[in-house]
Amino acid sequence: MRLAEKTAIVTGAASGFGAGIARRFAAEGAAVMVADVNAGGASALADEIGGLAQGVDVSDAASVAAMAAAARAAWGRIDILVNNAGITHLPKPMEDVTEEEFDRVFAVNAKSVYLTAREVVPMMKAAGRGAILNVASTAGVSPRPRLNWYNASKGWMITATRAMAIELAPFGIRVNALNPVAGETPLLKSFMGEDTPEMRAKFLATIPLGRFSTPEDMGSAALYLCSDEASMVTGVAMEVDGGRCI
């Protein structure tokens, strides 16, 4: 029960890595808000783990404000925020990515971190404590070709994590990031362009441990960084990548 009596918002939590994090947090004693643009999926997982469900578009200011208000109404505070929601554009030459695709990637992967911080940081400052975890990617450290603007959005997230950590440290708020390699999530097909045995083999050949990240891998790493065991850890971008970035 490493998160006993803690409260946590996890965005993009209806599936994939977010679901793995939400399940692990709940198993370790946290009260969890399962927040996702897929409101039905959020409700199903919240019912499973005994949490709260919240439909949210993390790129929309009003929607994020409503999410924070719902958490405040339910708990009176927010101890942990996990910015996990993310999207990508399909693999293609950088100049062929449309402006609409570019704007959507940065709205969901980057602007969302600003919007959630604007709502949650004041509550954490008032409490004198808090943990924020941004789910970035190995793409922000060791970019793959043809995913240029997705890579850039995750590099932005890593820099934002470090900037947030240094500014918020005096208030007792820790900010860290996770850099997963591609995993068995709804985004896998989008990263590869097509989900075939050949494409999977090509991806796996770049991961020394020879497998994809799993939601359970991410849940374990997120648990450590958001627990009091990591009370001296801030500004870290931890790779959970099977050696991909070595």
Rank of each mutant, 00 (worst) to 15 (best):
G172W: 10
G219T: 05
V105M: 03
V56F: 06
R144G: 04
F212G: 09
E5M: 12
G41V: 02
A169F: 11
E101A: 11
V56H: 07
M124K: 10
F17L: 15
A31H: 13
N176S: 13
V58K: 00
N109G: 09
E100Q: 14
F17A: 08
P93K: 15
A107V: 08
T206H: 12
A30T: 10
A26N: 07
I173Q: 05
M199V: 10
V56A: 12
D195H: 10
A46F: 03
G86T: 01
T159E: 13
P170V: 12
N83D: 13
L52A: 12
G183A: 11
L209T: 12
E194C: 02
K125V: 14
R200W: 00
S142H: 10
L187Y: 01
S112C: 05
G128T: 13
A13N: 08
F191L: 13
G243A: 07
E194K: 12
I49N: 04
I207H: 10
V108I: 15
K111P: 05
A136W: 08
D47C: 01
P186S: 04
E184N: 13
E5N: 15
A205P: 08
V233N: 04
D36F: 05
T196C: 02
P208C: 05
L147W: 01
P93D: 15
A44Q: 13
L209Y: 13
P208K: 04
Y224C: 02
A26Y: 07
A85E: 09
S112R: 04
M67F: 04
D241E: 05
S220F: 08
S142W: 01
I173V: 14
A230V: 04
E229T: 00
L90Q: 11
S231H: 12
G130Y: 12
F171G: 00
K92F: 03
G16I: 05
A177N: 04
A13P: 09
G55N: 03
T11W: 02
L147E: 02
L133T: 06
F17Q: 12
V97Y: 02
F212A: 13
I173K: 10
D241N: 15
R244M: 12
V181F: 12
E194G: 02
I166K: 14
W75F: 15
R174A: 05
M123W: 15
N109W: 10
V34A: 07
A165F: 12
L3T: 00
I166R: 14
V181W: 10
A230S: 11
N151Y: 06
S15G: 01
R24A: 11
C245Q: 11
A73E: 15
P180R: 09
E167R: 14
G155E: 05
S142L: 09
M123P: 12
L115P: 06
S142R: 14
D96L: 14
H89M: 02
V82D: 13
R144V: 00
I173A: 06
V233E: 08
L187R: 07
N84V: 01
P91I: 05
T11L: 03
L133E: 14
R244Y: 15
A163V: 09
L225F: 13
G18R: 01
I9F: 09
Q54I: 03
G18L: 10
